[in-house]
Design a binder for these strands. Structure first.
Length: 202
DNA sequence: AGTTAGATCGGCT
DNA sequence: GCCGATCTAACTC
C-alpha cells in the first residue's frame, strides 16, 4: 500500500487549541508501520497538556532539550521515557512558540493484534494497549520515533475516521500533581479499552 | 477486588 | 541525587 494515499489527519488538525485536539482525536486510528507490518488501533483515551498555563505539562518551566518539540510545529510526535521503563507517546499541537501536546493513553486494537500481543508478551487483547506505556510497547514506539512528523511519516500517523457514533467524556488527568482543575482527559464512553486510572469512568 | 512495592534510567536542579 | 503524564507482581482480604 502507498502510505501517501491514506487519508490521514493533516497539520491543521493539530495546529489548534490543545484540549480540542485531544477531544477530537478520540475515534481516529493510530497507525504504526514497521517492516511492512501494520499495527493500528482506535484512539479511545487522550489527555491535553498545554504550556504556560498548565503546571502538569513538561513545557511549564520552559524549553529544554527533551521537551523542545512541544514548542515547535504541530503534528509531530513527542516521545519521552519515564519511570525507567516506559515510553509515552504524544502529538504536538498549537502554533510554533506555544507549547502543547496530546498524550495518547489508550487504543482499541484493530490491525496487527497478533504482533502487538507478541511485543507485549501477553495473550489477553484487553490488556494489549489500555494504557499509555502499554500501547507504546505493543507498537514498538520508543525514543527513536521522537520528533517524527506524523503528517508525512510512513512509520507513524493517524488515519482519519469520519464516523463519530460514540460519546466523548472528560475528567481531570491521571497521574499528575498540580493541574487537576482542568478536565483535559478525554475518553470514549463505554469503551472497554479505556485505561484503569484512579478517576477512570467519572 | 483492592493495595503496595519495586523496577529502572533520562532529565532536570 | 531525586523524581516521574507507569506497569506488574505479589500480597492481603
Amino acid at each position: 500500500m502507498d502510505w501517501k494515499l491514506v487519508l490521514r489527519l493533516e497539520r491543521d488538525f493539530f495546529a489548534r487549541y490543545t484540549p480540542v485536539v485531544a477531544k477530537e482525536l478520540i475515534g481516529n486510528v493510530l497507525v504504526r508501520a514497521i517492516d511492512g507490518v501494520i499495527m493500528s488501533g482506535r484512539i479511545v483515551e487522550a489527555e491535553a497538556y498545554r504550556g504556560s498555563e498548565d503546571p502538569a505539562s513538561h513545557a511549564y518551566r520552559g524549553m529544554t532539550k527533551r521537551n523542545a518539540v512541544m514548542f515547535g510545529e504541530a503534528g509531530h510526535s513527542y516521545v519521552y521515557f519515564t519511570y525507567g521503563n516506559h515510553h509515552l507517546l504524544n502529538f504536538t499541537t498549537e502554533t510554533e512558540g506555544t507549547p502543547g501536546a496530546v498524550l495518547i493513553r489508550a487504543l482499541e486494537p484493530i490491525e496487527g493484534v497478533r504482533e502487538m500481543l507478541r511485543n507485549r508478551g501477553i495473550t489477553d487483547v484487553g490488556e494489549a494497549s489500555n494504557g499509555p506505556g502499554k500501547l507504546t510497547k505493543a507498537m514498538l514506539i520508543d525514543l527513536h520515533l521522537n520528533a517524527e512528523d506524523i503528517v508525512t511519516s510512513p512509520r507513524l500517523y493517524v488515519r482519519k475516521v469520519r464516523r463519530r457514533d460514540f460519546k466523548v467524556r472528560s475528567t481531570s488527568r491521571i497521574g499528575i500533581g498540580e493541574g487537576g482543575e482542568y478536565d483535559w482527559r478525554y475518553y470514549m464512553e463505554d469503551n472497554p479499552f479505556v485505561s484503569k486510572g484512579k478517576l477512570s469512568q467519572g
